[in-house]
């Protein structure tokens, strides 16, 4: 344990940031680095195994999997980080407010909404959103955010409830500090850490959810590459040409690993003496 907490920047945080930086570089540099056009279809070269000219092989249209993976990264990463950040922001706010006004009607209403959403079939919501607003990536994000914030709200609320009984908050209240001040100065920073850690762990399942919903048309529309839909499309040929999945899977594994390491590092840095929540 102690070994991990050396210095201001824990080892895992550094490692995570380095991996993430590398992925970001590869993805941002896709136009320069990708060996082929990610959209160009070549029927003669379809479903080829990995080779010198196609390091990760080709898909059913003869498109280069490596190039598609690199190009697809910006959309997947951008979207999932955006979705996560939005869910995080909403969840933090709702959780803080609910916790602050514990045992008032505000809390009751918020908790009922949260319970309802937790018990709600996600697929129904996704289909309704696709049908009402149309398909496409943005709507997928709306669907995901509208459900995902709940976990963060619950966590934040419980942390706030625990903190409220602590002396520093009580002292602030006694000294006459306003609710907003207490929320922003005292509660927010300390609730941040467990919530951030939870968020970094959620990224992987978020990316996989993108692929699970692509059959509804929620997600990237063809031909743009995106890791989630590449996984979904690769399923048809999975037993004969598993290499199609290799590119996106490797990148997702690395991304999730990087975020996990960052999460652990953050916990050690932000929360060194607290009992870890996750």
């Amino acid at each position: 344990m102690n070994r991990l907490r050396n210095g201001r920047y824990p080892l895992s945080l550094t490692a995570g940031l380095v991996i993430l930086g590398l992925i970001a570089l590869l993805v941002a540099g896709a136009p320069l680095l990708a060996p082929h056009d990610p959209l160009e279809q070549k029927a003669a070269e379809r479903l080829e195994k990995p080779s010198a000219s196609h390091l990760l092989g080709t898909d059913r249209f003869g498109r280069d999997v490596l190039s598609r993976t690199l190009h697809g990264g910006s959309m997947t990463l951008g979207a999932s980080v955006l979705a996560l950040a939005s869910a995080l922001a909403i969840g933090l706010l709702a959780g803080l407010v609910a916790g602050m006004f514990h045992r008032t009607w505000v809390d009751v209403v918020l908790m009922r909404i949260i319970d309802t959403l937790m018990a709600f079939p996600f697929m129904v919501l996704a289909i309704v959103i696709a049908a009402l607003f149309g398909t496409g990536f943005i709507h997928l994000l709306i669907a995901i955010v509208s459900v995902w914030w709940v976990a963060f709200a619950r966590l934040t609320r419980s942390v706030v409830l625990q903190l409220k009984s602590e002396t520093s908050i009580a002292a602030a209240q006694v000294l006459g500090a306003g609710t907003t001040v207490i929320l922003m100065r005292e509660l927010l920073p300390r609730a941040m850490s467990p919530v951030l850690i939870l968020a970094t762990f959620e990224l992987g399942s978020l990316i996989l959810t993108l692929s699970a919903l692509s059959f509804l048309g929620l997600g990237a529309q063809p031909p743009s590459p995106e890791w989630g839909s590449m996984l979904a499309d690769g399923r048809d040929h999975f037993l004969q040409a598993p290499h199609i999945l290799l590119g996106p899977t490797l990148f997702i594994v690395m991304t999730v690993l990087a975020f996990n390491l960052i999460g652990e590092g953050l916990r050690d840095r932000l929360d060194p003496y607290e009992r870890a929540k996750l």
Partner: peptide, 23 residues
């Protein structure tokens, strides 16, 4: 914690969390 068995378990966890169920 910190030994190879810990690392192996964590790697497997990350992999399992990143592989689609259908695979």
């Amino acid at each position: 914690a910190g030994k190879w068995s810990d690392h192996v378990i964590r790697w497997i966890c990350v992999a399992l969390a990143s592989i689609p169920v259908f695979v």
